[in-house]
Amino acid sequence: MLSALRRTTQLLNHLTTASKAYATTATMTDPSKYKFNHSMLRVKDPKASVKFYEHLGMSVVNKLEFPDNKFDLYFLAYDSPKAASHGSHWTDREGIIELTHNYGTENDDNYKPHNGNKEPQGFGHVCVSVDNIQAACKRISDAGYRFQKRLEDGRMRSIAFALDPDDYWVEIIAQNPVDQTEDVKETDLGTYRMNHTMVRIKDKDVSLKFYQEVMGMRLLRTSENTSANFNLYFLGYGPPAGEKSANGVNPTADREGLLELTWNYGTEKKEGKVYHDGNSEPQGFGHICVSVDNLEAACKRFEEKGVEWKKRLTDGRMKNVAFVLDPDSYWIEVIQNESLGKAPGKY
């Protein structure tokens, strides 16, 4: 009898200790330290794509090769002395573009990544903010690159959309008042920022709650366009948006690593899935990625929040990366910020 009681007591003590340890580990992560690290795009020819983004002033800050799996990853970011994350480890940055190249696509006449703006829609664009937008757009045009929308097209004369070699849209916005840079002939690539990534969402309330309460982002800016039946929501990590606007319109134009959610009125009333996640056919955009302070603790926190997983840390061979699904089934990669801690294995 005494022996059985002792074993029961030991078991209860063990369960209590394990429960406390789990709770402690789950709270060992601080969402305010998270970073919107990168956005992934599949590309046909990495030489052409890297050349384009380097023309926009970006640099390859990391390259990962997986010859056994027949793909390579190129991570490009702004890294000049004036850049927001100059010299930082690639996992300790925001505003990276990851280009994924599957071997052989450059020689496949039938391969073309899906840009997300043709049907089926989902991903919309990445966006670069520049100092003098007229000079910046002229420099892109002079290099022979194409535009979806030039500055002079349409009613919106303060934004342009360049096309990369795979027809992904790259929005160009101004950091300075457009009416004050018309006669400026030079542009300083060192001041550019990879400002945001845009995806379309079905239900604004559901998505805003997810990105704020689960992913820990802050709603920085809302742009309501009632006459055109859509709203834009800009979220990110870091401080709130300032009251003053550098370009006279957009208080986040000089920021890096933002997420733009585009909500078209009425989509929340549609049945089933509305937007394409980019990973089912036709493929193009792959995922966004958040780097965290403590990968295991962050994933336990996400578990407590009831997220839907594409891949848990414990799934498969790669134990150092997880994928969460957002309300529209866009993939969100979760990795360790290696400047804040050691990843459980080499990524």
Score class of each variant (00 low, 15 high):
Q180C: 02
T9Y: 10
N37F: 06
E333V: 06
Q121G: 05
T100W: 02
M58A: 08
E54K: 13
E182Y: 03
E308I: 04
Y111R: 05
M217R: 01
K118W: 15
G104N: 07
W309M: 12
D166C: 02
R255E: 06
K346V: 15
D45F: 02
D109M: 07
T9E: 12
V43W: 09
D68K: 14
F123V: 05
S3D: 15
A343Y: 01
A322G: 03
M40W: 00
E268D: 06
R221A: 00
K346C: 14
V178I: 08
E308H: 11
F234Q: 09
Y237W: 00
K305Y: 07
V292K: 04
S227N: 09
A77W: 01
F230Q: 11
T181N: 03
A162W: 03
F147L: 14
F210P: 02
S49E: 08
R200L: 00
A228H: 12
E98A: 06
H196A: 02
D109H: 14
I97Q: 00
I332H: 07
E94D: 13
T252F: 14
S85Y: 14
N320G: 03
P239N: 02
P46T: 13
E213Q: 11
Q336C: 05
M194S: 12
G316Q: 08
G278N: 05
D109R: 14
H89G: 02
D92Q: 00
E304M: 13
S227Q: 15
D131I: 10
W90R: 04
R93E: 03
D30A: 11
V170L: 10
S3T: 05
K185T: 15
L99Y: 02
E243S: 14
K342W: 12
D315N: 06
K44H: 11
G242Y: 08
A143C: 15
R93H: 01
Q175A: 04
Q148R: 15
N225I: 10
L340D: 12
K47Y: 07
G345T: 04
H89N: 09
Y265M: 09
L208D: 00
Q336P: 07
L56S: 13
E243Q: 10
P327W: 10
T100D: 02
R139I: 06
N264E: 11
K319W: 03
N225W: 06
E152Q: 07
V199M: 05
G238H: 03
Y103R: 08
K138F: 12
D68F: 15
V249W: 04
N337Q: 06
E213T: 13
S291P: 03
Q10D: 10
Q148T: 01
E119D: 12
T187R: 11
K118H: 09
F71T: 08
Y347V: 12
K305I: 04
S291E: 01
N337P: 08
L5A: 11
M194F: 10
S39D: 08
N62D: 09
I96H: 00
K70V: 10
V249N: 01
I172P: 10
Q134N: 14
K33T: 11
G316I: 04
E243W: 14
E98V: 08
S329W: 07
F234G: 05
I201Y: 12
V170W: 08
G104M: 08
R200K: 09
E98Q: 05
E304F: 06
D142E: 13
P177W: 03
H89P: 13
K35V: 04
L340E: 13
A143K: 03
H276L: 05
